[in-house]
Design a protein around this nucleic acid. Sequence first.
DNA 1: ATAGGGTTAG
Length: 632
Amino acid sequence: MTQAPAAVMNKSLSSLKFSRTRTTSKPIDKLFTHKTFQETRPNNNQQPTPKNPHPRTQQQNLISLIKSGTQNSLLQIHAHLIRTSLLQNPTFSLRFLSCLCFSPFRDLRYSRHFFSQIDKPSASHYSTLIRAYSSSDSPKDAFFLYKEMTQKGLKPDPVSSSFVLKSCMKFSSLFCGLQIHGRILGDGFQSDSLLLTTLMDFYSSFASRDEACKVFDEISKKDTVAWNVLISCYLRNGRTRDVLMLFDSMKNEGACKPDDVTCLLVVQACANLGALDFGEKVYGYIEECGYGVSLNLRNSLIAMYSRCGCLEKAYGVFKGMPEKNAISWSAMISGLAMNGYGRDAILAFEEMQRMGIAPDEQTFTGVLSACSHCGLVDEGMEFLHQMSKEFGIEPNIHHYGCIVDLLGRASLLDQAYQVIISMGLKPDATIWRTLLGACRIHGHVTLGERVIEHLIELKAQEAGDYVLLLNIYSSDGKWEKVTELRKFMKEKGIQTTPGCSTIELKGVVHNFIVDDISHPRKHEIYDKLDEINKQLKIAGYVAEITSELHDLGAEEKAHALSYHSEKLALAFGVLATPPGTTIRVTKNLRICVDCHNFAKFLSGVYNRKVIVRDRMRFHHFRDGGCSCNDYW
DNA sequence: ATAGGGTTAG
């Protein structure tokens, strides 16, 4: 937007003279007869002027003038409308209003000012202004206008209702949206499928999945977009598995053919689940339908493969793209980072710059996480400075989170604490938790306790945080503290999440918890695990007993560790898959050091690629080694 | 007399 007309309008409107316009001094009434009028025309004497334009022609000319209106000519027209009382003509005022609201130089304050001069604004006037406000930075005003018009007894059209709903999502007021839902029913729009689709999206953005589903059921003609909104609702609200089911039912029941957006959502669901097989199936469908040209879709495929630990395939998609944007590069960089290829991630970042693609916030999140996963402290700090100095991107909480992780892993705990204190942003629970994780790694009791205090202050302490503190105490041998904390947790009823490992075989997901005896092949699995343990010990594996949180003797500790869910899943993998195939295990929490070592030895002794995806990232094991700096 | 609507990537 250039010069805001509002600035002009703040002066008394009546003081506005046509002569204010620099470029023309012709009387406005004459100018209106020129269809091709442009205020910048230096001299329009050559233009033939009709002698006595018919009033009707004059009005038509005025309309086309408004249509092609520029900032200055609109000011003139406004003054003209006031003088001739045309402003109270519903047609003209509406034309003029929508021109003010949607022209490239729109100014909402000016529009509002103009609106206030209309004696009896119609529903259309309101709709126009509502629409303008809904995409502005004061969406709340859209809602107020909506209320105002309904109070005046004007009936909003379905389109404005839909815009107001969007506004409510913007300023996140469930309450306001509910009122609109009521109005929609009262206005008899309950069968407008586009409006209902917006309503679904509204409920979905407030995590009201049930309500969204109810609205979906009420849509008589459900088209693909309605399905997509439903799927996006399930995805947003964490019902990821159901997304896959919905995709299948769309495809099989044939009611609605999944389009590129559907595929995009489902690919994201697969990425969240780590459901590689399903993801590949969707990829096949994408190719079959020719959606593969979509940039969005390919970008999400890169992320999906990365998050399933298939870096080669992620790279394959990336390489095959004729056009790559910042998102493609960021996805690839993050993919490399989360799979332990930090150096390559940085190389990719450099290559991206050579290609002239400007990095953005999320690119730097990927780059910094690459540094933290590979322990590149100096590089990471350098990138942090570079991003604001050279790229003008101010670090956000995620960037600082990576830095805290980076310093914390490198045992620079006090420095990490200082970063949080002095970063100039309000620390969130996640960043404290990151530091707590670092305290756990380095057994830093006093700082760990301080961090818990911060979390409690934020009222954000979770069971996992206390478990980390338990870890910190036990690794330091502070058993009386461990007992005390356990008692405290019991009193407060703090439930810890049980560790769970899953392995997917032929599309079936097998779950394991510690000491699990629920699997139908439990005997074979335990036998196999004992055999593996023997073999690994020969190769030099020693149980890392600091991973055990109970005050036990060394031998008992080793025993307590030996049936962790990861190990059961790995043993089942060795048992149930042909030699040489890759074993993929997903763990809901962080893998412990001992299981990490176990997987590493297993990859060498049994000649298997092992990929463990835990809450933090991927651990790739191969030939008795790990692609990343070992545990961290 | 008249503009105008819903889903989507790192």
